[in-house]
Simulated assay, not measured.
Amino acid sequence: MARLTGWLLLWAPLPLLAEETAKAGEIATSGGRAPDTVATILSLGAGLLAVVAIIYGCAWLIRRMGGMTGMNNNAIKVVSVLAIGARERIALVEVGQQQILLGITPSTIRTLHVFDEPVVDAGNAGSSDFARKLQSMIGKSWSAPERKD
Rank of each mutant, 00 (worst) to 15 (best):
A2E: 15
T5K: 09
G6E: 13
L8Y: 02
L8M: 11
L9G: 11
W11K: 06
A12G: 06
L14R: 09
L16V: 15
A18N: 01
E19A: 11
T21R: 11
K23H: 04
A24S: 07
G25H: 06
G25S: 10
T29C: 08
S30C: 10
A34V: 04
P35K: 09
A39W: 06
S43Y: 14
L44Y: 08
L48I: 12
L49W: 05
A50L: 08
A50E: 02
V52S: 08
I55R: 01
I55F: 00
C58I: 09
C58M: 09
A59Q: 15
W60D: 13
L61A: 14
I62V: 15
R63D: 13
M65G: 00
M65Q: 04
G66A: 03
G66C: 05
G67P: 07
G70T: 05
M71G: 12
A75R: 12
A75W: 00
I76G: 01
V81N: 03
A86M: 05
R87S: 11
A91V: 10
L92R: 04
I100V: 12
L101Q: 07
V114N: 05
V114E: 08
F115Q: 05
D116K: 14
P118L: 01
G123W: 01
S127Y: 03
S128E: 14
S128W: 06
D129F: 06
F130H: 09
A131Q: 02
Q135D: 02
S136P: 00
S136F: 04
S136L: 10
G139P: 02
G139M: 02
S141D: 15
A144N: 06
A144D: 11
A144W: 00
